[in-house]
Design a protein around this nucleic acid. Sequence first.
DNA 1: CTCTTCTCACCTAGGTGTTAATTT
DNA 2: AAATTAACACCTAGGTGAGAAGAG
Lengths: 561, 561
Amino acid sequence: MHRSCTHIHTQRNTRTAARINNTPKGGRRENSAGVQGVCLLKPSRQSLAMACGSPQQGGAKATQLSPRASAFSIAALMARSPAGSRGGRDAATRGTIAAHEKFVEASPRRDEEDEEGDDGVTSSVADPAGVADVPTRSRGGPAAVAATAVPGMEALIRPGGSPAPSAELASVTCALETKELWEKFHELGTEMIITKSGRRMFPTIRVSFGGVEPDAKYIVLMDIVPVDNKRYRYAYHRSSWLVAGKADPPLPARLYVHPDSPFAGEQLHKQMVSFEKLKLTNNELDQHGHIILNSMHKYQPRVHIIKKMDHTSSLVNLKSEEFRTFVFPETVFTAVTAYQNQLITKLKIDSNPFAKGFRDSSRLSDLESSVYLERACAGGPGRESVDSLIQKHTYARSPVRPYSTSGGGDDDLDDAQCGAPPRGSAFTSTAGLALGGAWVSHAFSPSGAPIAAPLPGRPDRVSPSCAPSSSSSSSSSSSSSSACSTSSSSISPSASSVHAAAAAAHAYARLGGLQAHGAGVHGPALSAFHLQRYHHYFQQGPYAAAMQGMRHHSAVMTHFV
Amino acid sequence: MHRSCTHIHTQRNTRTAARINNTPKGGRRENSAGVQGVCLLKPSRQSLAMACGSPQQGGAKATQLSPRASAFSIAALMARSPAGSRGGRDAATRGTIAAHEKFVEASPRRDEEDEEGDDGVTSSVADPAGVADVPTRSRGGPAAVAATAVPGMEALIRPGGSPAPSAELASVTCALETKELWEKFHELGTEMIITKSGRRMFPTIRVSFGGVEPDAKYIVLMDIVPVDNKRYRYAYHRSSWLVAGKADPPLPARLYVHPDSPFAGEQLHKQMVSFEKLKLTNNELDQHGHIILNSMHKYQPRVHIIKKMDHTSSLVNLKSEEFRTFVFPETVFTAVTAYQNQLITKLKIDSNPFAKGFRDSSRLSDLESSVYLERACAGGPGRESVDSLIQKHTYARSPVRPYSTSGGGDDDLDDAQCGAPPRGSAFTSTAGLALGGAWVSHAFSPSGAPIAAPLPGRPDRVSPSCAPSSSSSSSSSSSSSSACSTSSSSISPSASSVHAAAAAAHAYARLGGLQAHGAGVHGPALSAFHLQRYHHYFQQGPYAAAMQGMRHHSAVMTHFV
DNA sequence: CTCTTCTCACCTAGGTGTTAATTT
DNA sequence: AAATTAACACCTAGGTGAGAAGAG
């Protein structure tokens, strides 16, 4: 199983040859540049003048039917055939699943898993386990892991379609778009480049929401939390990740408020939310609002949604039900300053349009690719090619989802035919996804949709388990699917009228946030101290805060540490 | 005075030579393309997938002092020396005026004026005159027209600094950034290309606000209204515009809601609002939310600001004081499908970074340019070069204004030294700026800042003069400077709790909007019919409406006709 | 040695005026 | 004859991994 696709294993040399016009490639040119070790960017005029060129052009298609209206019926449909049915919701999820398209063998991923299993340096962090286990179980056991790739049903929790009784956001669903591409990367062990000036993520986190109130307003945020308390290194000869020790000191935690926030609920129904502008950096002193990460550490992106209760648009009636968190385990990645796994490099080059210049002109054509992939898939038809995935990922950039309703519903059986993928996600089955504690452990829906519970109502209940050193909350309870929606113990915190942004901060704190593995800066999850700090940045709510100064950096800084 | 700068009068041939690499330039290549006369765009994938690349990147500089805090004192300063003082507010307006830098002679402009004066085809549209006259008069007569170019004082109305007593937005000021560049174009007779797919404006309308409440929220919009009821043609041999007849039928009126709306007041204080993404089109069926214009017609852009009263964020307590309109006469332009005046072409090429490829490599260098310009300015020092204007315009793209407070205040006398420009704007002195009627006639501040009155309170009072055929409202009363701020007869309309967007529509209707010269579709300025139509598009307020579907087209469609 | 930083060629995405061809 | 359209070369702006060089 290790490297069955040798002809894809074109290593360093292949990439060199891939360049079409090989001019004096690489290396500095006439720039002597006695580098002073300072990380300052060249202070050109351009670096200050922000250009525009947004993807906000293109075709119209603004008037489309809102297929989300039938979300519940689709959910019911899916509940009946959890492994294969799909709603044909939009073009991005219409094709066949190709998560285990096996562009290459997933061996590196296996090694990683073995590593985690063997090494067992689970540290002191509690492993709620349920985070990753729920989707697997609810899908019908390990054999059905492949069904995770079934698109269109990720966020359709609560199959019966009955909304939660009380919680404000209980009925909100969240689906990861371009899930297939994420899974392809996940199989290899996703890596994300971090640079001093900030680097985008690829693939991009794109989600679509359901179950929101059309007339309400919502703030959508993202953060990226450490997966464990480890530092990793890549064993090139083994093509595997090894634990290199304990994690480095935590970095300033930052929330990335989606720049289009606040969203109207109606808007969320119609279009997806793309975090393509989010950037990752390893510069602790970053002033651009980018998310700061430690290289060679593993991270888990998370998506949060907050219902905006703006009376006078500056206060929010904070209740635990007013925000929710969604975690997609297939988006786990290792932050790196340079790619370690060459297969990741290759997949990025082949799937990221901006890296097209590095594609091997002699690589598999679309036809060859599909032929190859079909073979890899044991003859199952309908398996998506990398190209189609890429196309969908690119197409998904359109903020307005056309929701092409034609077709898309005839791949159900194909998915099943293709059998289980070679590997489930390491994190899905065994790894410790210690996202701060147990309060995100039931974040997944029965259909595999990562749906965080509306968060435990009381901070004090959470804070103990939030402590990084307290391995007490390692309730490996793979919370049942029903727990996902009903676990909202949901008691309104004492603060019933704090700032909307503070609410986000609150949620953040209770979620454990980035400190989950950090030093001992933990008190009550929502100390007045922390709230104040958040309040400083969210003086007018996350949206306004993002708008002010940092908005055009598409982020809000939250120096939470 | 006619063409004193002949060596700049490089006509068509010069531009051809300007291209650096003259490959098989122009013309279709292997594309036989039996054009079918259909205007459909090539339906590529890209045209649907909206890319993003907005100007929301770049340097930080988010933490800057807010010099706007001293706006009133500066205003007082300016009131004392209306012709020359400047506050040195920010880099964009810090240099010396170069409006009459005389890149070329303003003869075409003169011809145009003559045309309007001689021809006198003022049609039936009322000419409120005051629209253009107020700034001139309040400045001290025609001789002071040059002072129009004085930057930094445009929006600083009410020199004493005493805010209006009651009106919500009475104290709001609005300044046109990169005013100097606008004036350079204005002297030649600005032209704007309109295309089927939409073309940006250049220069861009960029404004900064003052006097807003930090905690309030504001919606900033733009529209573009016809200046008169005429159609024009360009007499190439005379280098002048001639009236070619009555205007073509009006096109669907559209409001362009700034995509960053709503703005927090604090935000408006710190950063400027740029309408760089606004696009113009001649496609009546445009689905992108672009502003639709008739080619060979003259238009006046207008900026509107609405105070958002969002209780539950969907209703607004509509009062006449809650929005205001600002008109900058130097931004008048003629919509064209191809440039007519070659001097405009040259100025665009020299000032628009995207047209850099057409710049004459043998053109004046920065040094030469400044030398030349100094000569043209009769030896006055401190005159800005085209390049510095361009630099400022480009730099002004940054949404966050650094407000460099150093320098910038020492050009006052230089401006005066330079004497009056060869030409005041035709519209400023004689032309009929029939922006729908008298309700924008007192839209200018004593300092020359185009400040619209808070709008007459009652629609019915406005509607009669709004009728295009009623030349009754031609009260040439160059309303006194005080009238500008106190003219807010401001009686709350009957509707005291309508939708925020409807409020915008309301304002729009009362302002006369694009129908000012249109057919006889006029009833009461704010008929229930019109309100309903607006309501349809603004179902969640202009902001939300813009967000939904059209937001990523950076506009809101308002089929007002 | 491993890891990070920096510059570069090569892309995507899209904003310019030019030009020839077409339309009115 | 005048105005419009569409393809095009040439830009800006910025995202990409390659590769050399630097730092530890």
